[in-house]
Design a protein around this nucleic acid. Structure first.
Lengths: 338, 338
DNA sequence: TCACGCAATGCAAGCGCTTACATTGCCAGG
DNA sequence: CCTGGCAATGTAAGCGCTTGCATTGCGTGA
């Protein structure tokens, strides 16, 4: 059998109209009389017609596809935000393509090209750090894009997010208030990750503000993974002069730290306090539940979608938007003891 | 400025060859002399040329895009498998498009159409349960597809996965061996989810095999979410005749149950045993670490990719493949205490 | 009754690429 | 020196859709 999928022309013939009319019935129904539209729709149904994506993209010069490049799909940090992003886009009839860069700048550029090659009309990017080539590419191809998950008033690029540094400082202030003086931090790798870097700076800000020497902060950098949080914590607990508080750059590292604490028989927060950042689902489940910073994932996702749609439509998206991240008090942060 | 992106023709002109030669240099380099190829590549670089996706898809009648429809992106059950799927595909120069159905058959059909409309050459599907319309659509459009995350020898459709029923029976056998007689189960919703259903059947199989009445199994069905696991567990603990073991259909529900146990001051596994299924990351992190069934996520993803590529290329993919799921013994399952 | 305007529809030119087929030019064998 | 064969390249016909512009036909006001 000649398994020829029905084309616009087949539909047109069946409905006894021109292809232009069929196209209009589908894409701009009010430009066609009700009677004609009904005939066309009937033909569409009978034939099981579906437009050819390639042809449509080629002719219309837009794909109604947006792309998002996130650092990782593995853990759920971006899941919630992306979900909201997606929901908002689908309201506009836009499909989302997701790619992950595995926290690698080279890979990010590659993914960016791949998404654009696949016809992405606009891009959602995470954080400000990326290669000049990436930005040059965006400029050159005039790709509408917004940066999310961070807000930095010193950057001109359109973005939506919160101030990582400020949020982390607020947490660290609290830690210091509780009397902690020997503080360590387990951070995600800061190279190519402005959010991680800002969080480290936030801690230092707090330390400095309290009159201590920020250089004294014991800092371990390690890739984003539970097991790494665990081994970093273990290393931190090895030496003499143990910290009484370990601030983690994210919940995943904190979860690892927490599990290692349990394995080592270290009581949290009795012997040492541990904090996270992000407030993803595991923060509530670990034992004890993690004190962390709640990040407005959904708002960022939704807001980013709105900015991007405006941009794509040639409208004015307005200025970058700053959201609030607030302390989520649970049970892993206590006063310093003895 | 006339921001005309370079086309094949521009490249051809610059390199002093025809568009056909440029196309060939890009897609079948060995059909072109080295000298010409170099000239072309130079022109491509100078112009920053990138092929137009729509045009390419239209002319070549294939997009090199595969689609995957998973029940949810929210939690990480499918993340690892999808990651492996993706890696294998990218080796073949294929891009992955992911859509989620939120466990809704109607949405699944919609997503399926959306993916195909966007040019997906082939589809990865989870589980066997879906509407007849879905299958009719796949048949009609002749979309290559494979079913993953389950293996059922009674189904003809090409699939890769493990036998959910058998795996759960093995776990339940173990539970019974440890002396548990009052058993409850918290299952994901079984409607439209053959995997969940099979897991319930597996528990019943075990109960029956041990000479007990499977009808006595206390069964709660609830949507996939930690909080639901918690409330289901709470309900189960309310009445008299508490179960001594609560088998959960997946790790997420088990994590919820576990956290509720802690809140209620119920010792696990001292007072009651809890088990999960899937062995996702949280299984290791919760306290105590969850005894569960390890599912070969990565193998399924990789294998599915291989089957699908073969299918798309018109090769023989061979028969469905059955993988093994094995018990992952941790700390939430203990002997029944009198 | 006649023109005029406007809504509905048709016509046909692309959109940028792939690829079957035609052409060219070169080399080896006779 | 001629010719068949083959590798390299060119020519041009679509692929299925959108859309600017042309055409049709109707209702309306003068």
């Amino acid at each position: 059998m000649d398994n020829h999928l029905p084309t616009l022309e087949d539909v047109a013939e069946r409905a006894g109209v021109s292809t232009a009319t069929v196209s209009r019935s589908l894409n701009a129904p009010d430009r066609v009389s009700a009677h004609t539209r009904d005939k066309v729709m009937a033909a569409v149904r009978e034939l099981g017609y579906a437009p050819n994506f390639g042809a449509q993209a080629l002719a219309a010069k837009r794909t109604n596809t947006f792309g998002a490049i996130i650092p990782t799909m593995e853990n759920a940090i971006f899941a919630r935000g992306l979900q909201a992003f997606q929901e908002e886009l689908s309201r506009e009839g836009i499909t989302l393509l997701v790619a992950s860069s595995s926290y690698s700048p080279e890979l990010e550029e590659e993914q960016m090209r791949a998404l654009v090659a696949r016809g992405a009309d606009a891009l959602l990017l995470i954080g400000h750090d990326r290669t000049p080539e990436c930005y040059a590419f965006l400029e050159h191809r005039q790709i509408p894009h917004v940066v999310a998950w961070t807000y930095d008033k010193t950057r001109a690029r359109l973005s939506i997010g919160f101030d990582n540094r400020k949020a982390m400082k607020a947490l660290a202030d609290r830690v210091l208030d509780l009397g902690h003086r020997t503080i360590a931090m387990i951070s995600a790798e800061t190279a190519g990750n402005d959010r991680a870097r800002e969080r480290v700076e936030g801690v230092k800000d707090a330390i400095e503000a309290s009159g201590l020497n920020p250089a004294a902060l014991r800092l371990v950098e390690t890739p984003y993974a539970i097991a790494n949080g665990a081994s970093a914590f273990e290393a931190l607990m090895q030496g003499a002069d143990r910290p009484t508080a370990v601030l983690c750059g994210n919940d995943v590292l904190a979860a690892g730290a927490l599990s290692m604490a349990r394995k080592l028989g270290i009581d949290v927060p009795g012997d040492v306090s541990i904090t996270g950042f992000d407030d993803i689902e595991i923060a509530e489940i670990v034992t004890p539940p993690l004190t962390t910073v709640h990040v407005p994932h959904r708002e960022m996702g939704r807001g980013a979608a709105r900015l991007l749609v405006a941009l794509r439509n040639g409208e004015d998206p307005g200025p970058s938007v700053e959201l609030e991240a607030r302390l989520e008090w649970r049970e892993t942060l206590g006063v310093v003891c003895g």
